[in-house]
Amino acid sequence: MIAVDGFSKYYGNFAAVRELDFRVKAGEVLGLVGPNGAGKTTTLRCISGIIPATAGNLQIAGINIADDPVAAKRQLAFFADEPRLFDHLTVQQHLNFSARIYQVEEYEERAQQLLEQMELVDKRDQLPAELSRGMKQKLVIACGLLHSPSVLFFDEPLTGLDPLGIRRMKQTIKRLASEKGAAIILSSHLLGLLEEVCTHVLIMKKGEKVALGPLNEVVQQYSNGDSGVSLEEVFLRATGGSED
């Protein structure tokens, strides 16, 4: 579903990401972790075609994002860390607009389902200024799921959510992977979340891959023979716990 080969991103002489290779298959959830400035957000943005990569072959559902960005983007949804909405569009109009931009035929029923799932039905005529942060986040997710993407990117998805919202978000991510067979990359500093929902993990530092593989294998790799080692401990051992 997601294939990344030899991916690099440079800003002038500065390498934000260097020579990254990995795969995410259908139904897998890859947790992207690393200290601040490791290149996680840059990686997500490049793979989702928001910004161009400097080098490498990035494929979404078998489509090269550089060669045919439109076709590749039809398969994906990107959720930024902050819910950024149009000030003057209502909840329903955000969904209408998303359906049109992704050319989703007869979306009304699906939009209604998503509004119900996200508990936004009674907010459909409200503007973003009238919504709480958690509701805004839910609206962004509803808009992103409207075209039934097979590849999803989440950048810090739990920021600002209440406990119930966090539980729902985790359930949504798990359900999308297990029931819908979506390939998901999730970037977060909340290692507890990754332990709960991820099948695989990629640890980055200063733009380079430090560890990659199924969660249990990476944990095993850094356990040094200890039992019951947490992902937090693995992260600290793999990265040294700092940006440098």
Binding site: S48, G49, I50, P69, V70, A71, A72, K73, R74, L76, A77, F78, A80, E82, R84, L85, F86, D87, F97, S98, I101, Y102, Q103, V140, C143
Partner: peptide, 16 residues
């Protein structure tokens, strides 16, 4: 572009 336009339009299936 506004932040909302970046968020909705940049990952959308649109040509440059």
């Amino acid at each position: 572009f506004s932040e909302a336009e970046v968020s909705f339009l940049f990952p959308a299936p649109l040509k440059r």
